[in-house]
């Protein structure tokens, strides 16, 4: 039934956009300093929490304009997550730069555990829910009584993602900062010799990546309406999977990977069992890597002998 498939397609793309945004953060950090920033998913979670806190503050003050509230929540969350990203890099990763490869990985895992439990102990382990911020949607088509709907929220998510990615692409391709980032990615030592302030660029990379995660967090919050301290883990792993699937280090690859994973999840849930949707995601990852060892858009690394 085409209507049903179309609905899954819409749902999958929405979800994929969220994953894609988080995945960009993973892939950026990986590209620039070659580490898996395991705490990135938890920055996303922090972003969602900041969002729910701002929205609650708004409704506590009796301000009813939800879109305005969302926008403010988005801005506050972006700024605060930027601070989180900056601090995490300074405290947990910078001292380890250039040392044993596994050390930053363990430090990142520690940071992830720390953030999860920080939020759990400070805000409680319970699920927190908000009412749907922007209800309603378009009816796209109807077939055999099945209504295909695209909610306003889904449109908002897709538009926000595209705008965010647009700004982000501009930064990476057109600005001096972007050039410096790409230079460090190619050869950090050489870039430093040529006067690129490596530390500053790496800090900014974390800030930008975290800001994207914050956007994703707000979108997750407004789409699902329910969050808890643990959402960062699952979303983080999915997004990391997306980044690897697309070819880690490749920015378009991250978005593509995110979309694919969103679609796999949506279609698997729609047509097979929802219980095994994550199994499907991981299996497809393994199969893709078997045939394309550096992901879909990753550069094949030819080892010079």
């Amino acid at each position: 039934m085409i209507a049903y498939a179309l609905q899954q397609l819409i749902n999958g793309i929405t979800l994929g956009m969220v994953y894609g945004l988080i995945a960009v953060g993973y892939t950026m950090v990986y590209g620039i300093i070659g580490m898996i920033n395991f705490a990135h998913g938890d920055v996303f979670m922090v972003g969602a929490y900041v969002g729910i806190i701002v929205l609650t503050a708004f409704s506590g003050m009796g301000i009813a304009a939800v879109p305005v509230g969302l926008l403010v929540a988005l801005l506050v969350s972006v700024v605060l997550c930027g601070v989180y990203g900056f601090t995490i890099e300074r405290a947990a990763y910078r001292p380890l730069r250039g040392s044993f490869r596994l050390a930053p990985l363990i430090s990142a895992i520690g940071m992830s555990i720390l953030l999860e439990n920080f939020v759990q102990t400070s805000q409680g382990a319970k699920d927190r829910a908000i009412p749907e911020p922007i209800p309603g949607g378009f009816k796209i088509m109807q077939q055999h009584g099945f209504v295909v709907q695209m909610s306003y929220m889904q449109i908002a998510i897709i538009v926000t993602t595209l705008v965010t990615l647009g700004i982000f692409t501009y930064i990476v391709t057109k600005t001096p900062l972007g050039r410096a980032m790409r230079a460090i990615e190619q050869d950090a030592k050489m870039a430093a010799l040529l006067g690129v302030n490596t530390n500053r660029v790496i800090s900014l990379t974390f800030v930008i990546g975290s800001a994207l995660a914050a956007v994703a967090g707000i979108m997750f919050l407004s789409y699902y309406g329910v969050i808890n301290f643990f959402i960062g883990f699952n979303a983080g792993i999915k997004a990391f999977t997306a980044a690897v699937l697309g070819g880690i280090g490749s920015l378009p690859g991250a978005v593509l990977g995110g979309l694919l994973i969103g679609l796999i999840e949506a279609f698997w849930s729609g047509y097979a069992t929802i219980a095994y949707k994550d199994v499907a995601v991981y299996s497809i990852l393994a199969i893709v890597l078997m045939f394309m060892p550096t992901g879909l858009l990753g550069r094949a690394d030819i080892e010079k002998v």
Binding site: I36, I237, I248, Y276, D278, A286, L289, P293
Partner: peptide, 28 residues
């Protein structure tokens, strides 16, 4: 067998995925 030719972090994520797959299958 199928994944050990992967390098570095690609291997890491696949092993992580296997860990999750096994847990999810047991759960479901």
């Amino acid at each position: 067998f199928p994944v050990l030719r992967l390098r570095g972090d690609y291997l890491a994520i696949v092993t992580l995925a296997f860990g999750e797959i096994i847990r999810l299958v047991i759960t479901n």
